[in-house]
Amino acid sequence: MNVIRTFGLSKTYNHLVVPVNALVNVNLEIAEGEFTAIVGPSGSGKTTLLNMLGGLDQPTSGQIFIDDTEITGMKESRLIDFRLRNIGFVFQSYNLIPVLTAIEIVSFIMLLQNYPKDKMEKRARELLDQVGLADKADVRPQKLSGGQQQRVAVARALASNPRFVLADEPTANLDTQSAFNLLDIMLRLNREENITLLFSTHDQRVIDRARRVITLVDGSIVEDQHFEK
């Protein structure tokens, strides 16, 4: 079953001196449980595509369906709620709330979702346990290493029980060991929990582990490879 479908997706930035076609007629299907890397040189449209799929930006033309719901043209207020309930985000620079502890950060998403309070802490602790941070539940981000912060971000992304997780260059700021740890965790979640993961990356370590690699050049898909791993 396809979680994500796009039809003729294009994005042109007209506010620049010369109009720039960031995405050109992208047709894409991402099935449930896929571990996909979107690769390509800088400026190839990886982040733009992720922003479109995550409902953070609207395309100039084309359609995006998440399951059977079209998110293109959706009202901003509905889109915010849709993102909250369907999409998990992991950002390059972690973007954690510095005044909250790890468990509060993970619970925060559930609070926004009006998740039952009596089950919230248990689930937050389980998620932190899944990313190997059970003992850091009451620690604030500034006292965690970059790798640990990114793992908290993964736990946060999973807290809303999303249909898929978008990760924009998640290992870009991590050292090799932290990057491998993070990838191991994400792969395990993908295999054991059947979580759909979609990365934009330059990182060969991520590309090597992906089961599908989509290559973008100048906003167009030039290669779509599937690997058996």
Partner: peptide, 9 residues
């Protein structure tokens, strides 16, 4: 980030 992850206006 807060708005991206679903914090409404």
């Amino acid at each position: 980030m807060l708005m991206a992850v679903g914090m409404n206006k």
